[in-house]
Write a protein that binds this DNA or RNA. Structure first.
Length: 394
DNA sequence: TCTGGGGTCCTAGGACCC
DNA sequence: TCTGGGGTCCTAGGACCC
């Protein structure tokens, strides 16, 4: 029996959030983003889209296309508050909810819709209730797999409800251009088009006939896509994927530079921000990666894995600067970034503390204690692995 | 056109070990 | 001395998504 997987996507979320605060923005061309150097459109209203404005477009260009565009700088704290309200409302209906990003989620409604005569009407009622409670607008996709639910929520916007059962795939998905397929981005779409795959239907046709050129172009991903276009593939909801795997911060400099003093100061700020966010989430990581973007917009990464787990800004900064000095000292750069990777959650740590320890150590020391414990085990694991290999106990 | 910042996942080569 | 094959971790880079 097929599951009922749902994907819910908030429509023009950041813009809608600003409209909730300031209703005078409604039905006007609005773009969220900065106007400064390198500023781009993060999200824009449907009104602005009529002028050709779209996400990731340079703000300068957006203004040329739409001279009376209203530019609003983003306020992520406010958006996160609204995002929680949205997710909590859906969680009040079913606990099987997986957050996919700030403005979208997957959920399993199999048990909820069982016995319901009009499924479309049911999801319409959820959509209207969300609007009533929060002012947010959403589109909902429903299907037997994650892929079909995702494609469904994208099919009709705003405030759409699209159900894609296996038997609907041919009618709904196959006529769509290949670039509209989830997972096929702006690199792969032109390559597929070049070999004659212009629609999702044609992709399905080629995959089902094991067309050599298509299989070769897609590599291992072909197996997955073949399942998707035939209505199979993952129908799981992953509840536990709440902890981030990396925390990063990057910025475009006020002007291109090769002055190490400026780079150092910038990295100090970035490392501090990464450290703060890691501490807030109670995460520690072992790998530091830096990114530099040169004047040709070419990004490069370098990373190093430390001997210990950390979320300390000094550790992050030291590693970042070492990597930078080793690799990029002569380079003139446009943007720099640093990311803490291989994260482990301190809260999940099962450290045993004696009552004495607990009395003695205040809360911040308790955190240090846990990190020390994790580090002992991190090193221990490495040593154990090394010795196992040595002794041949594989 | 002139290109932000936050992420995830996958691949592939090299080091190192048996 | 030269050879094969299997396994894991680290690192760099690429594609994709919001």
């Amino acid at each position: 029996m097929a599951r009922v997987i749902v994907h819910i996507d908030l429509n023009a979320f950041f813009v809608r959030a600003e409209e909730i605060r300031d209703p005078s923005l409604e039905n006007k061309p609005v773009a969220i983003g900065h106007l400064g150097r390198g500023g781009v459109v993060s999200t824009c209203s449907y009104e602005a889209r009529k002028y050709g404005v779209s996400s990731a477009m340079p703000m300068n260009k957006a203004i040329k296309l739409c001279p009376n565009l209203i530019i609003v700088p983003p306020d992520y704290r406010f958006y996160i508050t609204l995002s929680h309200q949205f997710k909590n409302y859906i969680r009040s209906i079913t606990p099987k909810v997986e957050s996919a990003s700030i403005d979208e989620l997957f959920a399993d409604f199999t048990d909820i819709v069982k016995g319901k005569k009009n499924v479309t009407a049911y999801f319409k009622s959820i959509q209207l209730e969300l609007f009533k409670r929060t002012g947010l607008k959403c589109s909902i996709g429903v299907g037997p797999t994650r892929f079909l639910a995702k494609m469904g929520s994208d099919y009709q916007k705003p405030m759409g409800i699209t159900i894609i059962r296996r038997k609907d795939i041919k009618n709904i998905l196959y006529p769509l251009p290949i670039k509209d397929m989830f997972g096929v981005g702006k690199k792969t779409a032109p390559r597929l088009e070049h070999i004659g795959v212009k629609t999702i239907g044609e992709l399905a046709n080629r995959l089902n006939n094991n067309d050599e050129a298509t299989l070769k172009l897609l590599g291992k991903f072909a197996e997955e896509l073949k399942l998707w276009v035939n209505g199979y593939g993952s129908d799981e909801i992953y509840l536990e994927y709440d902890n981030p795997k990396s925390i990063g911060n990057s910025t475009t400099l006020k002007s291109d530079t090769n002055q190490f003093e400026i780079i150092k100061q910038t990295y100090a700020m970035l490392a501090e921000e990464v450290s703060m966010r890691a501490k807030k989430d109670s995460m520690v990581g072992s790998t530091i990666q830096i990114m530099v973007k040169d004047t040709n917009y070419q990004a490069r990464n370098k990373s190093i894995t430390l001997e210990k787990l950390t979320n300390d800004s000094k550790d992050i900064l030291n590693a970042a600067l070492k990597l930078y000095e080793r690799n990029f000292l002569d380079l003139t750069v446009r943007a720099v970034g640093v990311t803490l990777q291989n994260l482990v959650c301190i809260k999940d740590s099962t450290i045993q503390m004696t009552f004495f320890d607990y009395e003695r150590h205040e809360e911040e020391n308790r955190t240090k204690l846990i990190i020390n414990d994790l580090n002992r085990r991190y090193k221990g694991a490495n040593l154990k692995r090394a010795s196992e290999l040595k002794n041949g106990n594989k």
